[in-house]
């Protein structure tokens, strides 16, 4: 499963995008957030972290799979 990264999430992970191995694949958005918090504790220091699935903001109970386009959305700061 691949996860698109933007803004500070690229700095925290040191990667342009994340690849989650098959055996660790999260089943929901909430699972993904929990896994991220374990792997990258600095993520938990952010003001907020949203996840977008197929370019829409997603709730924690939404099921995800590797066919979805998944992106981490750290606190936005446009304008």
């Amino acid at each position: 499963m691949e996860i698109l990264l933007f803004g500070i999430t690229r700095d925290i992970t040191g990667q342009q995008k994340l690849t989650i191995p098959q055996e660790n694949q999260p089943h929901t958005v909430g699972d993904l957030k929990a896994w991220l918090g374990q792997q990258f504790p600095a993520i938990k220091q952010l003001s907020s972290l949203a996840v977008a699935v197929d370019s829409e903001y997603a709730e924690d109970d939404l099921a995800i799979n590797s066919n979805s386009e998944i992106a981490l959305i750290p606190p936005v700061s446009g304008g």
Binding site: F6, G7, I8, A52, Y57, V76, S77, G78, G79
Partner: peptide, 14 residues
């Protein structure tokens, strides 16, 4: 519109 853009649109500034 500008207030909402700042809250929801996925754009980031450094």
């Amino acid at each position: 519109l500008i207030d909402e853009l700042k809250k929801t649109v996925p754009i980031w500034k450094k």
